[in-house]
Design a protein around this nucleic acid. Structure first.
Length: 280
DNA sequence: CGTACACCCTGGCCGC
DNA sequence: TGCGGCCAGGGTGTAC
């Protein structure tokens, strides 16, 4: 479900609820997520104040006043909601897949719901963050100045996979998932089937422009809502209305003047959409 | 080291 | 209406 734009949107939403709030109640309804919720989780969060909320790759980080950091990953189907005191939409009881419920001392309710349980909700000490197994091999942030043609050239030189598959590799550039990989390659007029190691200089440059351009545009739209993703305040994302290729098999290419038709192929067991006419 | 593939889990949709 | 098969925005462990 959530790629960088969705995670960033959820993060921004949480910043309206959490910072400077103290966690007054923590309920874990099931611990067996992709990474089991540690047994001391509740004790480490209770009574702590959230100083700030940050994003790294597709992870949401809550920095606590105890020097612990809460790590949340939404996996494919995870959602994080905040409800203020008196919010009419605020649930009375946990729903089937609500795994974690938290209340702050101003009576805001934070619900973590994840039907498929590919997500995770855990805590680690800030001194261990950089070396944490989940974070230590992550590549550069796609919205940072580190994203340069030379960086991509260096890191893709030995990759014999198609460029679409390489874009999904979080050890190179983080945050790009299956939807935005297709959208980025269309914007960069690059075929998803091209070998990552054989991209031209022009294509590397085009990717370095398309990656942040697509992701920023998607963040601005509040992410994409396909089936179940919603923002932390319950609002829907709208970038799905701006898809140029994703889930548009058989439809006309959106590029001005391009007479092509969007094609669906499968790469690394995942759907890829592109226009064979204008992507080379 | 890099790559391919199975697998984790639930739910929605489609065709029969 | 029911059921099997397939699909889904992510990531890991294993074998080669």
């Amino acid at each position: 479900m959530p790629e960088l734009p969705e995670v960033e949107t959820v993060c921004r939403g949480l910043r309206g609820f959490l910072p400077q709030q103290t966690l007054a109640w923590v309920t874990v309804r099931r611990r067996d997520l992709r990474v089991p919720i540690p047994l001391d989780f509740e004790q480490r969060l209770l009574g702590r104040t959230v100083l700030r909320v940050e994003r790294r790759a597709k992870y949401i980080l809550w920095y606590l006043d105890s020097d612990d950091v809460v790590l949340v990953h939404l996996g494919m189907s995870g959602r994080l909601f905040g409800y203020r005191h008196g919010d009419p939409k605020r649930p009375q009881a946990a729903a089937k897949h609500d795994h974690v419920w938290l209340r702050t001392d101003d009576d805001t309710l934070i619900c973590f719901c994840d039907p498929r349980r590919f997500g995770l909700f855990t805590v680690c000490h800030s001194s261990q963050l950089a070396s944490h197994p989940l974070l230590k091999d992550l590549g550069i942030e796609p919205l940072s100045p580190e994203l340069q043609p030379q960086y991509l050239r260096d890191h893709l030189a030995t990759r014999r996979v198609p460029v679409k598959v390489a874009l999904l590799n979080q050890a190179v550039v983080v945050g790009i998932g299956n939807i935005y990989a297709s959208e980025i390659l269309h914007r960069a007029r690059t075929s998803p089937e091209r070998s990552a190691s054989e991209l031209t200089t022009a294509q590397l440059k085009a990717l370095c422009q398309a990656i942040p351009a697509i992701l920023r545009q998607a963040i601005e739209a509040g992410g994409s809502t396909l089936r179940d993703y919603v923002q932390a305040d319950g609002e829907l994302g709208s970038f799905q209305n701006l898809f140029a290729v994703y889930d548009r098999e058989g439809q006309d290419c959106q590029r001005r003047g391009c007479p092509g038709t969007i094609t669906r192929i499968v790469q690394a067991a995942r759907a890829t959409y592109f226009c064979p006419r204008c992507q080379h």
